[in-house]
Amino acid sequence: MILVPCPYCGPRNASEFRWGGEARPRPPVGTVTPEAWRAYLYLRRNVAGWTVESWYHRAGCRRFFCAERHTVTNEFRAAYLPGAADRPREQNAGESLAAGREEVV
């Protein structure tokens, strides 16, 4: 089972987490069309490659965070708290986390 890099706790067994699926922005409720809202509810890009996902450390620190994972190799290359959602850390962009594991926490 894969190790998920929690920003607070470090790499932990995936069984401690709940996977939240692809992280996607919530459309503005005042102006969204039914098609766009339902795309937000039900549609996913589902790439074979790097994706940004939401994770919840259910059996640990109970924080939600985002992580970039390669869906074919299960490599992680970034994990950050929701506040930094728009900016993956520059030095980890494109590199496997295995190389820079100590830096995440």
Partner: peptide
């Protein structure tokens, strides 16, 4: 509890 926490942590910190 998790539902409420998810909104507080992700959408409205």
């Amino acid at each position: 509890y998790e539902w409420i926490e998810s909104w507080l942590q992700t959408e409205h910190p």
